[in-house]
């Protein structure tokens, strides 16, 4: 599996010269009958390759909508979203689906596993869209499950797994196609603090060891603090964008200097 072969054990290098995701004047307006409800009001943001960004904000701030637009599961009302050189805002449905299959790994709050498929089959699912043989698919699945520490649970169905294990399966599924971008919508929202911490460790590992670009929506400041960068939205507007890790490192550096 390429995800593992490309793994590095150093901190991922952020290439900020050419952003992986470049968002300009992004707008999203929902229309309910005759009423237009603006959710995002002209967002501009760049996300560098290898970055780990958390999107925060109160309910209705537009953070999940922004994540959905970046992931290509929703379409903006205006503006552009260029991901790795492709303006996904202007792709047709079929092209967008193919783009998602190749470039995006999803981690959902409630795992969204297929209940009739076991862990290995759930992880294998996205590979059906590739031209890989059954044998190759199974090899990839074994590697992905090993990465999330669930090799011994391959035959277990979602209802036979704990919440944390289910989320690990979902992470393996997100990884299996070696996507450019991993989007996570409240990945720890349904988990206790310890298990949530383990999931965040895993996401951190994806970013630091595999160099994956993570974009995560969360309500939890502790979870957000695991990201390099925290983007805060309120009422559809970006209100703060802090390089959390840089600030933390500067703080540590300053403490050392004294």
């Amino acid at each position: 599996m390429t995800a593992t072969t490309e793994a590095t054990h150093d901190r991922a290098v952020i290439d900020s010269a050419v952003p992986l995701v470049a968002i300009r004047a992004l707008q999203k307006i929902y229309v309910r009958g005759e009423q237009a409800v603006p959710v995002l009001l002209g967002i501009d943001i760049d996300i560098a390759r290898g970055d780990f960004v958390s999107l925060m904000g109160p309910s209705g701030s537009g953070k999940s909508t922004l994540l959905n637009l970046i992931a290509g599961i929703d379409k903006p009302s205006g503006g552009s979203i260029v991901v790795d050189g492709v303006d996904i805002a202007h792709l047709g449905d079929a092209d967008l689906a193919a783009w998602r299959a190749a470039h995006v790994g999803f981690i959902f709050q409630f795992y969204n596993l297929m209940p009739v498929l076991n862990a290995a089959e759930n992880v294998e699912l996205p590979l059906l869209l590739t031209g890989l043989s059954r044998r190759d698919r199974q090899e990839h699945v074994e590697v992905a499950l090993a990465m999330v520490g669930l090799s011994d649970r391959a035959d277990h169905y979602p209802n036979e797994l704990s919440g944390g294990q289910q989320q690990r399966v979902a992470i393996a599924r997100a990884l299996i196609t070696d996507p450019t971008l991993i989007v996570a919508d409240e990945p720890t929202g349904d988990l206790d603090r310890t298990t949530g911490g383990e999931i965040l460790d895993l996401m951190d590992q994806l970013n630091s060891e595999l160099g994956k670009t993570n974009v995560m929506v969360t309500h939890d400041p502790r979870a957000a603090a695991r990201a390099r960068r925290m983007v805060h939205l309120e009422k559809g507007v970006l209100v703060s964008d802090a390089d959390y890790q840089a600030a933390l490192e500067a703080e540590l550096h300053a403490a050392h200097a004294h």
């Binding site: 992931a71 599961i73 449905d93 079929a94 689906a97 193919a98 998602r100 299959a101 190749a102 999803f106 959902f108 969204n112 297929m114 699912l125 996205p126 059906l128 869209l129 599924r173």
Partner: peptide, 9 residues
């Protein structure tokens, strides 16, 4: 979910 993963209609 299947559609999000890239499966078509």
């Amino acid at each position: 979910t299947l559609k999000a993963l890239g499966f078509g209609p």
